[in-house]
């Protein structure tokens, strides 16, 4: 499904800002440094805001893939 192997996945379609970011943050806290998290997000505000907030927290956004249904799949590398 992805060129990046993922260690965990979270589906945040239908979850509003900033709850989607908070859930992403909490999930990343459970993971180890260097792990890959896959996040499913709605188009619109979520895809504009979540990658930015994840970046601000010091993690790396490895890939943003637009899905056929118009939503997005994000691969995040936990850093620090």
């Amino acid at each position: 499904m992805s060129e990046f192997p993922v260690d965990d996945s979270i589906d945040l379609r239908g979850v509003l800002c900033p709850i989607n970011f908070v859930k992403t943050k909490l999930k990343l806290e459970e993971m180890d440094d260097g792990d890959h998290l896959e996040v499913f997000l709605d188009e619109g505000e979520p895809i504009s805001n979540v990658p930015r907030s994840v970046k601000d927290e010091g993690h790396q956004v490895l890939k943003v893939i637009k899905e056929t249904d118009g939503n997005y799949r994000l691969i995040i590398k936990k850093s620090g």
Binding site: E43, G44, I47, S48, P51, K63, V64, K66, Y72
Partner: peptide, 10 residues
């Protein structure tokens, strides 16, 4: 740029 298109939708 990896061509993800986030800037276009943002």
């Amino acid at each position: 740029c990896n061509g993800c298109g986030v800037c276009e939708v943002t």
